[in-house]
């Protein structure tokens, strides 16, 4: 085997690296689940017609953390995307070498971070706009 022989840890480096690009959407998913779950439990069990002030505070805090996480995922993706070269290399994600593959994974992470960011912002809108569980 030649120069780019890798450690064949299929489970860790293999799928692990591939899953890494989905970090931002996973954060979206967790954020979504927390928002939905907490609201469902509180509105059913605690405050059916009451004030949602505390819930709002908690979910806004969760959202800030989620957005920070997505931003970090996007930033790390950005580094991979632009690594080893200037911005003008950006387009070359389709070459048959290791660097190009890394740039591609970085680029997809950035795009997914953008979409996840929008998704999280959308999901927090109702809790900001509604005052009760009705």
């Amino acid at each position: 085997m030649s120069e780019n022989e890798l450690n064949h840890d299929e489970f860790g480096t293999g799928v692990g690296t591939l899953m890494w690009i989905t970090l931002a959407p996973w954060i979206w998913a967790f954020h979504f689940t927390i928002c939905y779950g907490l609201t469902a439990i509180l509105c059913e069990k605690a405050i059916p017609d009451g004030d949602v002030g505390t819930l709002r505070l908690v979910l806004v805090a969760v959202t800030v953390i989620a957005l920070a996480g997505i931003a970090a995922a996007g930033l790390s993706g950005w580094r991979n995307w632009t690594e080893g070269g200037l911005l003008d290399k950006r387009g070359e994600t389709g070459l048959g070498d290791l660097a190009s593959r890394n740039r591609f994974l970085g680029q997809v992470s950035v795009f997914l971070a953008v979409v996840s960011f929008i998704g999280v912002v959308f999901v927090i809108l109702p809790i900001l706009m509604f005052g009760s569980c009705r």
């Binding site: 979206w28 998913a29 939905y36 609201t39 949602v52 979409v115 998704g119 109702p126 809790i127 509604f130």
Partner: peptide, 27 residues
């Protein structure tokens, strides 16, 4: 990913709290 956050839009008329509906509307 996002397609897993939409299911309640088939249940918008089941009387769930507005906030819950809002999450699914947003997604």
């Amino acid at each position: 990913f996002l397609s897993f956050g939409l299911w309640v839009h088939h249940m918008f008329t089941t009387g769930l709290p507005n906030i819950s509906l809002g999450f699914f509307s947003a997604a």
